[in-house]
Amino acid sequence: MIFTPTRIAGAWLVDPEPLPDARGFFARTVCVAAFAEHGLDAHFVQQSVSRNTRAGILRGMHFQTGAHAEDKLVRVTTGAVYDVILDLRRASATYLQWQAVELSADNQRAIYIPKGVAHGFQTRTALSEVFYQMTMPFAPGSSAGVRWDDPAIGIDWPDCADRMVSAKDLALPLLAGLGEH
């Protein structure tokens, strides 16, 4: 695996190193020892999938708080998404900075998202599936988020005439109303 730091402190891109042969290829996507060499927790206790049925679906920006804060490894197994992370850790040197990356079944890239960093994505294909591995189980009472279109953050989302955002995500607070997390 190839680990590339992002501009968000503690977040990494993780690319497989395929071993090709006449049948296709084989590649590791997680190795506890390799992740530990980069200071990353790869003890994933829960896995989830988000299946999206059209281009322009936007989900985010989500994170878990308190004792349920989680590290996540996110990859796309079908289709492609414009994936965004946002640093909400007040003590971080990259506080309030965001970064976007394309994750797709074709590029096989994953992104490691540390605790305190919000995550969201916009689908780029008619069908996409996003696979999450988390170091903590989901706890509904600790689920939080911030508006995807908060002008104080200024995430540059791809243009989309027919964007679909859930009522729950539209009701997320702006950064100014987020309070302590």
Rank of each mutant, 00 (worst) to 15 (best):
M1I: 05
A9G: 01
A11F: 02
W12H: 03
L13H: 02
P18N: 02
P18M: 02
L19C: 02
D21H: 00
G24E: 00
F26R: 11
A27M: 02
V30D: 01
V32N: 08
A34S: 11
F35E: 04
H38R: 15
Q46C: 09
S48C: 06
R51I: 09
G60I: 10
H62L: 10
F63P: 08
Q64T: 04
G66I: 08
A69M: 07
E70C: 07
D71A: 12
K72S: 04
V76L: 01
V81F: 08
V81G: 08
I85K: 04
R89K: 03
Q97M: 10
Q99G: 04
E102K: 10
Q108I: 03
Q108H: 11
I113H: 05
V117R: 03
A118G: 14
A118C: 07
G120F: 07
Q122H: 09
L127K: 10
V130G: 07
F131S: 14
Y132C: 08
M136S: 13
P137I: 10
A139C: 14
A139G: 13
P140Y: 07
P140T: 01
P140R: 01
G141T: 10
G141F: 00
A152S: 15
G154I: 07
I155W: 06
W157L: 07
P158L: 14
D159I: 08
D162Y: 08
V165D: 03
D169F: 10
L172Q: 14
L174D: 13
G179Y: 11
G179R: 11
G179T: 11
G179M: 11
H181N: 12
